[in-house]
């Protein structure tokens, strides 16, 4: 597969994701601030244990050909 097709597929996927989100946004009910107790719980955070998540992702990233998605930053390493 050449790069152009792959890039096109990636763009399609992101467009799909964006569309999905905006449609949800349009039809979802408002969640009032006082109804957000569940969302504020520690286990509902996107990364409830940030250090542990960073450690796992560092291990995966060092042994696999992919990186990214979760955020920017962190230093590179000469991991063999």
């Amino acid at each position: 597969m050449n790069h152009r097709t792959r890039l096109l597929r990636l763009l399609m996927l992101s467009a799909w994701a964006g569309l999905f989100l905006s449609s949800l946004n349009a039809c979802s009910l408002k969640v009032a601030p006082w109804e957000r107790g569940n969302l504020a719980k520690q286990q509902m955070a996107l990364d409830p244990d940030a250090l542990d998540a960073a450690l796992s992702r560092h291990a995966y990233g060092s042994k696999e050909g992919s990186s990214g998605g979760y955020g920017v930053g962190g230093g590179g390493c000469g991991c063999n």
Partner: peptide, 19 residues
């Protein structure tokens, strides 16, 4: 990235990264 609260029990996030 976009994070969207769906209802009082769920949320969704979509990130696009480029390097």
């Amino acid at each position: 990235g976009i994070t969207q609260v769906l209802d009082k029990n769920s949320l969704i996030q979509a990130n696009l990264t480029y390097a």
